[in-house]
Amino acid sequence: MSFIGLPSWAGAALIYLALGLAVGALLLRAGHPHSTAASALAAWPLLLGLLGSSTQKPPLQGGPKAEAIDRAFGAVDDLLEQQRAQGANVSWGGELGDLRRALEAADARIAMVDHILDDLRAASPDAASVAADLDDLAAARERAAAELDAVLGGVHRLRIQVGLLALSEIRDEAAQAVQQRLRELHARARAIEEISSLGADPPRAQAAASP
């Protein structure tokens, strides 16, 4: 088998290099350095993840609870959609969206802390103070994750309340209860949104240094 008069392996190599050239050009255009663009000639399939990404720092990505958040809010959204279809006045879409964004932001911060912990633990710090700070950070991370779980549990209970709303004869009162629940959840989500709330206790090293 031949390709434009060349052996098939040479043809395949030419096509591979041509695609590498194209990927390299796109990487250069995205602001990546020449060494990265040149590397695309040899290993462009491994660098496809760089396409579409600028060299600027990207926003925080989904964390360990991303899927659970997606599932919980997806279920509530479906339920609200059904209620609307039955003519119920459920107008909390915006508040639900805010709550979801707050939880996703908190989740992304937990992922960032996970990243920091993995990195520092891989570095095997010798200093006792660093190890103590790491423990503090890990404990704060666990508290934040537990709080996020609690708010997610609240979202599940919210779903039950919305279901009850469909059966309630005093709809206004039930609707107010749902709205109240949403406000509470939002307040709790905002509390874990603050990075300072990750650590209730000051790091031991700082505490030891202070008079």
Partner: peptide, 24 residues
Amino acid sequence: TRPDRLVNRFDQPSQAGAVVGPLL
């Protein structure tokens, strides 16, 4: 000695330029 650390340290696309060339 610390391949995991290397991956964790440069796993954002904005940092790729520092490692792709040397690794290749």
